[in-house]
Simulated scan of single mutants.
Amino acid sequence: MPDFARNAAEPPLAASYYALLCRCGGGLHGSACTTVPPASSEVPLPVSECELPMIDVGCLTSDDRGGGSAEERAACAAAIARAAEEWGFFQVRNHGVRQELLEEMRREQARLFCLPFEAKATAGLFDDSYRWGTPTATSPQQLSWSEAFHVPLAGISGNSRNFGELTTLRDVTREVEGAMSKLASTLARVLAETLLGRPAGERFPEGCDETSCFLRLNRYPPCPFSPDAFGLVPHTDSDFLTVLYQDQVGGLQLMKDATWLSVKPIPGALIVNIGDLFQAWSNNRYKSVEHKVMTNAMTERYSVAYFLCPSYDSPIGTYKEPSTYMPFTFGEYRRKVQEDVKRTGKKIGLPNFLV
């Protein structure tokens, strides 16, 4: 068995992958499914690399209430809305999240994920928010080769007894959450006001607070078995807005014009993407775009994602009637997603709610 599979820190992804491979009739030359598959010699098919629209949002995020001039803010808002319509993804700089803080977050994540698998899975860290793989997968193509802490913001204030020597992780995570939350709320309001033609209010979207929004601390281990293995399976985000900090390893890909494009990491930039709820609220003006993460055979990848989500009983609504979608709450949307994944192995999402 490879060293990867023996590492006490690693989740049992290799065993899960091979069990799914055997379940689908992919055992090695009829051999019993008792070992992990050998490393693949296949070369991944090339994917074109893209640079997402880069937007300087300093005029929006400056602590100085004046920020930039009215003309600068209007031009920035127009660029954000244009990227949301054309790409569903964009990058921001001068975003107000300190680079030193992001680098500290990366170091703390590495410490966290180096813990033994059993400790991560059973020690109650971050309110038992540890996840790995894909429990609902029925084939290797449905397995996400990754592990994560899916952290409700209210859980970040957990007591130090649950953190031990990782107490600094809690403090860094709390600071990252605060900075990303401020950025996400600012961008969401700007996008809403562009369509409304008037102020959207300080609390747009309604119902988004620390009880509903969350951070996801991601690690994508090296995967030597298949060049086509997903670190995160193709999906759209079931939220209003996502803010992502990724390292320089790469692997994020998005769908544009029916083609997968690889997103080039840019030092110091954060990636922002539109979620399903914003697409629904905007009557499809803003695009929630399918994306995925591909694994790396040699190098692990880390990222942190902030998800701007409302409470489960929040109605999503629309900025302009008539709506493309039937009325639904976030809770109804999430339940339907979970039902579809359980029944079909994949998310269907917004098409379920079309009028």
Rank of each mutant, 00 (worst) to 15 (best):
A5K: 04
A9C: 08
G26Q: 00
L28R: 07
G30K: 01
P38T: 03
A39M: 08
P44V: 01
V47S: 07
E49C: 14
P53I: 09
M54W: 02
I55R: 03
L60W: 08
G66V: 11
G67F: 03
A81S: 15
A81L: 14
A83L: 11
E85Y: 06
E85P: 02
N94Y: 12
G96E: 02
R98S: 15
R98Y: 13
E100Q: 07
L101V: 03
M105Q: 09
M105E: 06
R111L: 14
A121S: 07
D128Y: 13
Y130S: 00
T138Q: 15
P140W: 01
F149G: 07
V151W: 03
G155R: 04
G158H: 10
S160N: 13
E165L: 12
L169G: 02
R170H: 05
E175K: 04
L187P: 02
A188L: 04
G197S: 05
E206V: 05
C208F: 09
L217V: 15
Y220M: 03
C223N: 04
C223Q: 05
F230N: 09
G231F: 10
V233D: 10
T242N: 12
T242L: 09
L244A: 07
Y245I: 07
D257F: 11
L261H: 10
P267D: 11
I274N: 07
G275K: 02
L277A: 11
Q279E: 14
A280M: 05
W281G: 01
R285K: 12
K287N: 11
K287H: 11
T295V: 15
A297K: 11
S303W: 12
G317Y: 13
Y319M: 15
G331A: 08
Y333R: 04
R334V: 15
R335Q: 12
Q338V: 07
I348F: 10
G349K: 02
V355I: 15
